[in-house]
């Protein structure tokens, strides 16, 4: 394969991987701190996309719509966390069941409010052009997605390594009980982290809109992918998620061309192997299951 074609395939894989990263890292951070396996994470993703769609249709412009969607989903996340998950910390099964119930309910709500047609969100006007690379044109929007993903990663790194909030969260991941003992308002931290994870997923959904489109079942599909990514990367470590999201994005994109029948299967087998050999994931520390 020519260099330029290879480059383009890599870029395509990267842009997809970055989208996956944005969505999955919310899930891993939430699990890392709160030990909540949030089955409704895909719902946040889908809602982010659908609310953005509605706002765009109300002539609000892509960027304001995205922010509104993120805010709406963040609010929903807080409500869910406070009302439904609040008493369930430590009860893994109940959490999973409740978040699964939420997934089920939100999926139907989406069908009710937005119908079952495929919807599209246009690429935001400033980014609606293509850049010539070799003899192919590559959409600038996808390059933007890559850039944004890197930005998010950098922001997360900075927050974790250099700020106090990050320190608190790191401490919480290591030893939750200690956190309370140190006088930190654990309830507040939990609510904020959950909200943050949900918002990130919603932003991912909004940004994915122009590329993937909006359709029923996108929540379940992204949930499966996120789960796989989070597990391979390591529950609780967003760095691991970053790497594994890119890997999965690449496998999917290249797989489409070379092993169209088995790209997804390869990803799953990879995940099962990781879970058996190193259950904490490629980058995770030993997490108590």
């Amino acid at each position: 394969m020519e260099i330029s074609t290879l480059m383009l395939q890599i870029l395509a894989g990267l842009s997809y991987g970055m989208l996956l990263f944005m969505i999955a890292c919310g899930m891993t951070i939430i699990y890392g701190l709160m030990h909540v396996m949030n089955m409704a994470h895909g719902s946040f993703f889908a809602l982010g996309a659908y609310v953005t769609y509605s706002m765009v249709h109300a002539k609000l412009g892509f960027w304001p719509s995205l922010l509104i969607a993120a805010a709406v989903v963040a609010l929903l996340g807080v409500v869910i966390e406070r009302l439904l998950l609040n008493n369930m910390y430590g009860k893994m099964n109940e959490q999973v069941l409740i978040t699964f119930g939420i997934l089920y309910v939100v999926q139907d709500l989406i069908k009710w409010i937005w119908g079952t047609d495929i919807l599209t969100i246009g690429v935001p006007k400033i980014l609606n052009f293509s850049i010539a690379m070799g003899d192919i044109m590559f959409p600038a929007y996808r390059l933007f997605v890559i850039a944004f993903g890197i930005l998010v990663a950098v922001a997360l790194w900075y927050m974790e390594a250099k700020t106090q909030t990050g320190a608190i969260i790191r401490a919480g991941v290591d030893d939750r009980e200690m956190l309370g003992a140190l006088g930190v308002n654990v309830k507040l931290v939990f609510a904020c982290v959950f909200m943050f994870g949900a918002a990130l997923a919603a932003i991912g959904g909004a940004m994915a809109g122009p590329i993937l489109g909006l359709y029923n079942g996108m929540d379940m599909e992204i949930l499966t992918l996120s789960l796989v990514i989070v597990v391979i990367g390591g529950l609780g470590t967003w760095k691991g998620t970053f790497v594994s999201a890119l890997i999965v994005g690449m496998i999917e994109t290249f797989g489409q061309v070379y092993f169209p029948n088995f790209s997804m299967a390869i990803v799953f087998v990879f995940m099962v192997i990781v879970l058996i050999v190193k259950p904490s994931g490629l980058f995770g520390k030993g997490v108590t299951a």
Binding site: E2, A12, R142, E221
Partner: peptide
């Protein structure tokens, strides 16, 4: 090129067509 139902990203196919 046979595409799986539900495919969302045709980037790789576009590249191939171009070639």
């Amino acid at each position: 090129d046979w595409v799986k139902s539900g495919t969302t990203d045709f980037a790789t196919y576009m590249v191939d067509i171009s070639k």
